[in-house]
């Protein structure tokens, strides 16, 4: 009978993505609830030393699938290798991070394993009837509680939502033999945007600007740099050519859940809210006291962002 929790971690060039710690921590919590064991899988090339980093989050077993054919993510290679590992382990529950890679991979895997998949899950609870998975639909306008029939159950968890908890265990590390199998896609080139830019979906704090910036994002960038935050934007700012597509938050942009979201000169259109309404704390800065963003914010400041943000920067610098 299928048994155990199996977490698929994500690394890039030898460094774990933050979602990996979230996924393993949540895996530990669920393995305890289900009274079972936790396995974490790492896929990649030249990753032999990576298992140490993940041990603190509570896996009993770590599988290191190390093969040159896994050096860059391709759907085919990763699905082939994971399918072998999963068939060998026969887990009851598989947890993957719903990153861009995890969404692509989990859906292909679910189809191959003929398993039910809950995508972009924000909460998991145990009931008498088994696990219940909560996920936003319609851009977060409703939350669905979903059950999965049969095993394995697959859940892809939304980045930045579930807590990272350290639970050191003495884990065994296995290096299973890897068969990459038939692969039709090949990675030709990889371009990483400039080094220390913080990824929106992983950021603790986001400072976002909209049409109200009139195209001048300098104060937003200053505040963001001071807070170690990521810069986001509304679609209008992207359409105007002020910001790249990758900065857009919303229904046709990124879905983010930071601790703190500061919306500056953004009116709060429903399609924008779809991308940030699960932020833990929302601050709105807008010169129009009637702007709809205020009805979705925790804290609001009315005024000109070009006056207020420099004052906020000053106040933060004065903080001891």
């Amino acid at each position: 009978m299928a048994q155990g929790v199996f977490v698929v971690t994500e690394q890039r060039d030898g460094t774990f993505r933050k979602i990996s710690y979230e996924a393993v921590s949540e895996g530990r919590r669920l393995a305890d609830l289900l009274n079972t064991n936790l396995t974490a899988a790492i896929l990649g090339a030249d990753i032999a030393t990576m298992s140490g980093e993940i041990k603190k989050y509570g896996a009993e077993k770590i599988l290191v699938a190390d093969d040159s054919g896994l050096s860059e993510y391709t759907t085919d290679a990763y699905t082939n290798v994971l399918t072998d590992l999963i068939e060998e382990q026969d887990p009851e529950l598989i947890i993957i991070g719903a990153s861009t890679q995890g969404k692509d991979l989990s859906a292909r895997l679910a189809a191959r394993l003929d398993a039910g998949l809950v995508m972009d899950c924000v909460a998991i609870k145990q009931t008498d009837g088994g696990l219940v998975f909560t996920r936003p639909m319609f851009g977060g306008k409703v939350l669905a509680d979903v059950e999965i029939a049969g095993t394995p159950q697959i859940v892809a968890i939304r980045p930045n939502v579930m807590s990272i908890v350290e639970t050191p265990k003495s884990a065994t590390v296995d290096r299973p033999s890897v068969k990459v199998g038939e692969v039709k896609t090949s990675v030709f080139e990889k371009k990483i945007e400039t080094g220390d830019k913080i990824e929106l979906t992983e950021a603790d704090i986001i400072v976002s600007g909209g049409r109200g910036t009139g195209g001048d994002f300098s104060v937003i960038e200053d505040l963001s740099a001071l807070l170690g935050a990521a810069v986001g934007s509304s679609r209008s700012a992207v359409d105007e050519g002020w910001r790249p597509h990758s900065d857009q938050v919303g229904q046709t942009g990124k879905v983010v859940s930071p601790n703190l979201y500061i919306a500056c000169g953004i009116s709060g259109a429903i399609q924008h809210l779809a991308g940030m309404s699960t932020s833990k704390c929302i601050v709105a800065i807008n010169k129009d006291p009637e702007a709809p963003i205020f009805s979705k914010a925790d804290f609001g400041v009315t005024g000109d962002l070009f006056e207020l943000i420099p004052e906020i920067i000053k106040a933060i610098k004065n903080m001891t």
Partner: peptide, 13 residues
């Protein structure tokens, strides 16, 4: 394989 048990509105801020 997946079944919606209930739909709810997110809790209001």
């Amino acid at each position: 394989k997946t079944k919606i048990k209930t739909l709810n509105f997110p809790s209001e801020r």
